[in-house]
Design a protein around this nucleic acid. Structure first.
Length: 970
RNA sequence: GCGGGUGUGGUGAAAUUGGUAGACACGCCAGACUUAGGAUCUGGUGCCGCGAGGCAUGGGGGUUCGAGUCCCUCCACCCGCACCA
């Protein structure tokens, strides 16, 4: 009986399905464990071998935990709202719901082929009304909540309204509040709601016809498609994530994320400690004389080094400050800044621009008069939009001072060399009055104290993070449960949900930058007012999906308290690093809000995060010789001559020349040969390196016949100049993508080698977290291992063992020897440890070692093999089930008892010691573990090899570490 | 520029606490069995050297009886962030 993985895998996948082996209950005596994959966007391209890497890793861990006695939740679903389906709809007219449905079906069948243990009964799809009903509900929770600064948590907005009615606020009295119109009240409430709407500058992308989030804009162009992005003012929805900045930052301490991941989030949150300081405007003839300008600084210790002040050009009071003489220049500069897109500003970061306002400010510490400038390098949205410039300590300030000829005050003595700023905190302050002699680091506290004492400012913590834009002018997303009437929003109630997406015929944008929904007047206009026409962004549905898996069919709540209390937060979350700041921060925020509001009782969604690396493509190249136009354009294109890799190398190194090449080519192409004979000349040529489909290359050798059929026979007439009778391709590691013809489809590998082989090979490639190139060739090794293991159970016609009959089971019930038990228990220990620490590549190699050793021992004993099968289950579930069953066991091997390591079986009585001379290993000697050190030393010194190195001398000393090594120092 | 990470054979990689560097595979080289093999099995394979031996974990230095592992320094590559005061 051959190892027939096709039959075996089909058989068990069907059996698992029929018997609901992966169905998970919310009630169990076992401890719970929640393993989650970042759910995929179901793109039309299907899966390539890079996608399942994380899924395999999580599947192994899920099965392992189940074997170890946990009730394991391991669900899967689809993040099915999003731009690509909509763009496809624009191009083809196919409804996104249709393409999404089709794509999901493809994804599921691909995933099922690999044999994952998902409980599909818990599947979620973010574009399903039964799901997005609850996304809309949570939006309403956010809308109807505010962040209470005293309690540092979300509370119902009703509490705030009650407070306003009874006590008012610092902006208005209770009487005033009660006299406000609905519109006026709403205006105040909007400033506190966690989901709120305001006019804001948004990233408008003309080409995509939509607004993009900050993290969807990369270097001034759209992340998708690379289209230019500019600023536009629109009414937008936002999430007040800034309110949670501090808690998001603090929460990181409790999480098991990688350092780089935490660092990225810290960076994004961008906390900085400093102080706000007010400077008086000095402008005697003007009305603004004496007005206070507040700057934000992280370096109050440098306040005596302030030589000028810079304001963001966007601030509304700039023109009030500007002097009569400078007014025109200031206006021109403001115009200039407005005309500049983010893209230009980012491209020209090093260029100094700015404009003097004609006004001065007074340094409150020394009364010095300093000029006030405006410049685009100061951002309106950060701090107060105003800075105090200290050119001796800040590079940008220094450059600015050079450009505008402002003299620089040196407060750090020799630490400043006059040609560049020194941002040190360790210099001793000079020219700084009462701070003189202090190290800057220490002076920061002293200066802050003084600022507060003088009443001219206060300590202040700032965050770089901005509130998250939550509106998209798109069709394929969750509609907002909001109706507008005369500029005042009204929220729908839960009974109105889900507010379903209406059907549209066209997916193009609506008027004035609105989304496609604005075109459907019968949907937009309701008796209660006009519906919000933007939809929610992609991260809406993914910010809480981990909760829905816990209780997917609940039609009363998005998750019941019982279910969320039982499953609690995700124990292990596996996915790529690309969501470091987007998805992970948003879902952390939503979790905290829902925790504050009492919906769930944990405030971090993911305890441990494991980032799988990217699988890169290993591209293959062919080298096409193209004679230049001298030979004639028509013929250039019809010539299909390809040279092998080495020949191209030799050509570029000059080892062979064009003459050699063209003599070769003349034998292949009649036209060329004719031309060659007529002109008696060598045409010039270029070599074009072309991607070739990796699937028609065996290792590096091109399958010439397949190549001729490739691309519908585009190269059917190709001629080749070979090396050693083979066409060898060039190799490069690149991102895996269709256009580079380096994608490998997991389905094909499962068909050819089986899912078990595929799973183990993906893990065998290297550490899960690491990026590595895909090499299909290596899969053979893992496949050999699995077949070798099969042959421990069954003899087959090719297994050269004459004592057994081909195709017959060969396992026995004999009692294992000590040696066999040693192999088993060594493996138990290694697999258990490696699986626990996600070192799956070494675990696979441990299985190989185990099978190699058992084969060498000719061990076909059931008692040993059965245990190995249990260990193997997480990695190769199909073959494990098959053999487990064949051995006479009932039910799924997942319900077997995980083997327990017995250290006593590995206890050795002796050890083969490495014997080093001066730390260099020269020989080995075996001693009993209880041998006396004196005896060992004596015997070591008597050893021939040691004697040789000693050359008759006595050793300086002998290092002996029991059970480890011996080192003779000469 | 700032932050995080990685450098080990021809290739993917092991070496969990400082203790036999290169496990396990791919590839390659021999050989066996075969009509045949892209099947299977056996042996070999870091580099230099006939050999004894020497040299090897990006380079240089240090600590140590002993360093891939710890410290200093330099270099290269990858990934984030980037006028955030």
């Amino acid at each position: 009986m051959e190892y027939n993985f096709r039959l075996i895998e089909k058989k068990w996948q069907d059996w698992w399905k029929e018997n609901k082996v992966y169905k998970v209950s919310n009630t169990s005596d076992k401890p719970k464990y929640y393993v989650l994959d970042m759910f995929p966007y179901p793109s039309g391209a299907g899966l390539h071998v890079g996608h399942p890497l994380g899924y395999i890793a999580s599947d192994i861990y899920s099965r392992y935990k189940r074997l170890k006695g946990f009730n394991v939740l391991h669900p899967m679903g689809f993040d099915s709202f999003g731009l690509p389906a909509e763009q496809y709809a624009i191009e083809t007219g196919q409804h996104p719901a249709e393409t999404t449905k089709k794509n999901i079906a493809t994804f599921k069948s691909q995933l099922d082929k690999i044999g994952f243990c998902y409980d599909w009964d818990r599947e979620v799809q973010t574009s399903d009304p039964n799901y997005y009903k609850w996304t809309q509900k949570i939006f309403l929770e956010l809308y109807n909540s505010y962040f209470c600064n005293t309690q540092q948590k979300a509370r119902p907005i009703a509490d705030l309204i009650t407070k306003y009615e009874k006590q008012g606020s610092k902006h208005f009295s209770a009487e005033q509040w009660n006299g406000f119109s609905d519109a006026e009240k709403e205006e105040w409430l909007m400033q506190r709601r966690l989901a709120f709407s305001k006019f804001g500058e948004v990233n408008w992308c003309e080409a995509l016809g939509t607004v993009l989030a900050n993290d969807e804009v990369v270097n001034g162009v759209s992340e998708r498609g690379g289209h230019p992005v500019e600023k536009k003012k629109m009414r937008q929805w936002y999430l007040r994530i800034t309110a949670y900045a501090e808690r998001l930052l603090q929460g990181l301490e409790t999480l098991d994320f990688s350092d780089s991941m935490k660092e990225m989030q810290r960076n994004w949150i961008g906390r900085s400690e400093g102080a706000e300081v007010s400077f008086k405007v000095h402008s005697p003839q003007s009305t603004v004389d004496g007005r206070l300008l507040t700057v934000y600084t992280t370096r109050p210790d440098t306040i005596f080094g302030v030589d000028f002040m810079v304001l963001a050009p966007e601030l509304d009071y700039i023109l009030d400050i500007a002097s009569a003489e400078q007014k025109q220049a200031v206006e021109e500069y403001i115009q200039y800044v407005k005309s500049r897109s983010d893209r230009e500003r980012q491209a020209e970061v090093k260029q100094v621009t700015g404009c003097f306002t004609g006004a001065y400010a007074i340094n409150p510490f020394n009364g010095k008069q300093i000029p006030i400038y405006i410049a685009e390098y100061v951002l309106a949205g950060y701090g107060t939009g105003a800075i105090m410039a200290v050119p001796c300590g800040d590079e940008r300030d220094f450059k600015f001072s050079q450009h505008f000829n402002i003299s620089v005050t040196n407060i750090i003595g020799n630490a400043f060399n006059g040609t560049e700023a020194n941002p040190t905190k360790d210099a001793v302050l000079q020219n700084s009055d009462y701070l003189n002699g202090l190290v800057m680091r220490d002076a920061m506290k002293v200066a802050s104290d003084k600022i507060e004492e003088m009443g001219i400012g206060k300590r202040k913590v700032n965050y770089r993070m901005r509130d998250a834009g939550f509106s998209r002018q798109r069709y394929w997303g969750e509609p907002f449960p909001i109706v507008w009437k005369e500029g005042v929003p009204t929220a729908l109630t839960e009974n109105d949900l889900p507010l379903e997406l209406p059907h549209v015929e066209k997916y193009g944008p609506g008027p004035d930058g609105e989304g496609p929904l604005a075109n459907i007047t019968e949907w937009v206009n309701t008796p209660e007012g006009r519906r919000e026409t933007s939809t929610m962004p992609g991260y809406a549905g993914s910010s809480w999906y981990f909760l829905r898996y816990m209780d997917p069919n609940n039609d009363k709540e998005f998750v019941s308290k019982e279910a969320s209390d039982y499953w609690n937060s995700v124990d292990l979350y596996i996915g790529g690093t690309e969501h470091a700041v987007g998805h992970l921060l948003y879902s952390r925020m939503w979790t905290k809000v829902l925790f504050d509001l009492g919906n769930i009782s944990f405030d971090e969604p993911f305890k441990k995060l494991l980032n799988q690396g990217m699988i890169q493509g290993s591209s293959r190249f062919v080298y096409r010789v193209q004679p230049s136009t001298a030979f004639g354009e028509k013929d250039v294109n019809s010539t299909q001559i390809f040279i092998s890799f080495d020949i191209n190398e030799k050509l570029s190194s000059g080892e062979i020349n064009s003459k050699w090449l063209f003599e070769k080519i003349s034998t292949l192409s009649k036209e060329l040969s004719d031309w060659h004979n007529q002109n008696n000349d060598i045409p010039t040529y270029t070599i074009n390196k072309l991607h070739v489909d990796v699937n028609i290359v065996d290792g590096v050798e091109l399958d010439i016949e397949a190549f001729k059929k490739w691309k519908n026979g585009e190269y059917a007439n190709a001629e080749f100049i070979l090396e050693d009778g083979k066409y060898i391709c060039g190799v490069e590691t690149e991102k895996m993508s269709k256009s580079k013809y380096n994608t490998v489809n997991p389905d094909e590998l499962c068909d050819k080698y089986g899912a078990d082989t595929f799973r183990m090979y993906e893990m065998f490639l290297g550490p899960v977290e690491q990026s590595k190139p895909w090499d299909t060739k290596g899969i053979e090794g893992v496949h050999r291992f699995i077949r070798k293991m099969w042959r421990l159970f069954y003899s087959d016609s090719t297994f050269k063992n004459n004592e057994t009959i081909a195709g017959k089971p060969i396992w026995t019930n004999d009692t294992p020897t000590a040696e066999e038990l040693k192999v088993l228990h060594k493996t138990i220990k290694k697999i258990d440890e490696d699986t626990e620490r996600f070192s799956y590549n070494t675990a696979v190699s441990a299985f190989m070692v185990c099978v190699n050793e058992l084969a060498d021992l000719k061990c076909n004993k059931k008692q040993i093999l059965e245990q190995v099968l249990i260990l193997l289950t997480p990695y190769a579930p199909h073959i494990a089930e098959e053999l487990w069953n064949a051995l006479g066991n009932e039910g799924s091997i997942l319900d077997a008892k995980y083997p327990v390591f017995n250290p006593q079986l590995l206890v050795e009585s002796s050890k083969e010691y490495p014997v080093s001379i001066n730390g260099k290993m020269r020989t080995t000697l075996t001693f009993a573990l209880d041998a006396a050190q004196a005896d060992i030393e004596k015997e070591v010194l008597a050893n021939d090899i040691v004697q040789k190195w000693l050359e008759g001398n006595q050793p300086k000393k002998i290092i002996f570490v029991k059970g480890k090594m011996i080192n003779v120092v000469i």
